[in-house]
Computed example of a mutant assay.
Amino acid sequence: MQSVFITGASSGLGAALARQYASEGAQLGLLARRGEALDQLIASLPRPGLHRAYAVDVCDHAAVQQAADAFLAHAGRIDVVIASAGVSVGTLTEHAQDLSVFARVMAINVTATAATFAPFIAAMKAQGSGRLVGIASVAGIRGLPGAEAYSASKAAVISYCESLRLELKPAGIRVVTITPGYIDTPMTRHNAYRMPFLMPAEAFALRAARAIRRGDSYRVIPWQMGVVAKLLRLLPNAVYDLAFANAPHKARQSSTDKQPLP
């Protein structure tokens, strides 16, 4: 039986991945801020008594460590850790109030990824196996206007996972970077622009689980966005700038909106 730990599991990609792994018979440790949503998700899964919920903010690194320790004690081993917690919001550097939003995006999307992996590495080294999975985005391949924080954070996830992959390969640990295109989740439903190759979250989760099982180092899902991503990498800056100068912007968090980022 696989033992799988997933952050950002209360909705979106994290919840879809939880449903996918539960359907395969895995025992799950699910972490997110919204405890009630986690409990509802677990109640809907096969063999709900097998799984554990941890109502924790991924930016509280000590609490993440405690949740990881508790799940390791419950499961006895760890096979897959997926750092799926993430936030997407538009930022513009010219607005001073966006700097705090920028810092929060980096904390959730990048630093929390490392904080999620760190508690499990010793156990994986002792086993001589395991998968650490970072969730990036095609937005991390080239910078997009109006998405400075999001693009920068996902580019950082890609580079971070690559560094970690090289470090941990001799220990038998695979580091997998999953790079989604547009996936139908509550996060993308806020986008007020056309999203090519939009994929249902369940279809994404199935393909992601297959890539993780294979131990792929890097996988763009859906594959059509993988083709687009390769082309974007090849474009000279002048051509890219011309093509994307007027690209639609992500909505900024209003300076009057006092709600925390998701």
Rank of each mutant, 00 (worst) to 15 (best):
M1G: 11
I6E: 04
I6A: 06
I6F: 01
T7K: 13
G8S: 05
G8F: 10
S10H: 06
S11L: 09
S11T: 10
L13Q: 01
A16S: 13
A16W: 13
A18Y: 05
A18H: 07
A18G: 07
R19Q: 14
Y21F: 15
E24R: 15
G25D: 11
Q27A: 14
L28G: 08
G29I: 01
L30F: 00
L30H: 07
L30V: 12
A32L: 08
A32I: 03
R33V: 09
E36L: 03
A37P: 03
D39F: 02
Q40K: 15
L41P: 01
I42P: 03
S44N: 08
S44T: 10
S44Y: 06
P48T: 05
R52E: 08
D57K: 09
D57A: 07
C59M: 14
D60V: 06
V64G: 11
V64F: 09
V64A: 06
Q65P: 00
Q66E: 15
Q66D: 13
A67M: 07
A67H: 04
A67V: 01
D69Q: 14
F71A: 05
L72A: 10
H74I: 00
H74W: 14
A75V: 02
A75P: 02
R77A: 13
A83P: 01
V87G: 05
S88C: 15
S88R: 04
V89K: 13
E94C: 04
E94F: 04
E94L: 12
Q97S: 12
L99G: 01
L99I: 14
R104F: 02
V105L: 09
M106Y: 04
A107M: 08
N109C: 02
T116E: 02
P119Y: 14
A126D: 14
G128N: 00
L132I: 01
L132M: 03
V133Y: 07
G134W: 13
A136R: 09
A136Y: 08
A139D: 13
G140R: 15
R142P: 06
G146R: 10
G146P: 09
S151R: 04
S151V: 07
S151I: 06
Y160E: 01
E162T: 04
E167M: 01
L168Q: 13
P170C: 08
G172L: 05
R174G: 03
R174S: 14
V175A: 06
V175N: 04
V175T: 01
T179H: 04
T188K: 08
T188Y: 11
T188S: 15
R189I: 07
R194M: 04
P196Q: 07
P200N: 03
A201W: 10
A201Y: 10
E202S: 11
A203L: 12
F204D: 08
F204Y: 14
R213C: 05
R213P: 00
R213I: 00
R214E: 05
R214T: 01
D216R: 11
D216C: 02
D216G: 00
Y218S: 06
R219S: 14
P222Q: 10
Q224P: 00
G226Y: 13
A229C: 13
K230M: 12
R233C: 03
R233P: 00
L234Q: 09
L234D: 06
L235K: 11
P236V: 09
N237D: 15
D241N: 11
N246V: 09
P248T: 08
R252K: 07
R252E: 15
R252D: 02
Q253H: 08
S255Q: 14
K258L: 15
